[in-house]
Amino acid sequence: MLRKKHYLALGAVTLVTVLLLSLPSRTVSHLKLAIGGLFLPLFGTVNAVRQLPDRAADTLLPRSELLKEIDNLRRENQEFEVRQQQTDASARENDQLRALVGWQQQQPWKLKLASVVLRDPANWWRTIQIDLGKRDGLVENLPVLTADGLVGRVSSVGYTRSQVVLVEDPSCRVSARILNPAQDLGVISPGGPLENSLVDLFYLSGNANLKPGQEVVTSGEGGIFPAGIPIGQIVDSRQAEFGLYTEARVKLSANLGALDQVWVLMNPQLN
């Protein structure tokens, strides 16, 4: 039944698998990015396909609607400019006070916009690939966020693109602080495979006073994420391990299921 050809095929496939699985992680990372580079010519096609409905909608949209939209955007822009002036004044005041007390000066965030090009095809990981890489100055473990909140961190960097581990992936743990009077600290862990916008918050103190709707932000501990990035809001909480600690569910602020563009924080200032 088994002929020589079959034995050879079986042996070759097993050998290739064993070889690949025993490679050092750095080599594997380079190899993955090199193989993934084969898909580069297809990225443009995907972008074109994704933009087709938008372009079709643009041609159908009446001019009056567009002018109305421009007016709204102008108004919003003016509002933001006024707010920016107020924020600048606060930042100056903050810098002066920090200088008086002798604390380290805070640097403004330096952000780079990236487009999401691919999502993880496997259902048991939550990663995305973005179109920024080493040539854009990216390194591993840089925080990634949207205007709504935290998205994840850069896990591996290629020359032109990088892999980002999302907050709901098992390999991305975030130290979080709840904005309540006690400023409770916990660790964000993934929720279930189907719970796209919910994550779990573990290791809160047993007497933590949690209420639905309380804001959760990064605590700045852990060495990767700076303090103050919004993560989400408390949905509910329960006692765990006979009241030793409290667990809570957090609804993520950023919609991780529909990410098109994300910001990479290039100069995370850690505590």
């Binding site: 690949l20 084969l38 993880d120």
Partner: peptide, 29 residues
Amino acid sequence: NVVTVSLLAVLGGLWFDALSANPLGVTIL
């Protein structure tokens, strides 16, 4: 034939693992 089956397993597995967070080669077997 068995050659095509082997090629599909190796190349398909490599391509899949390269775009995913799987360790490289885990889908081949």
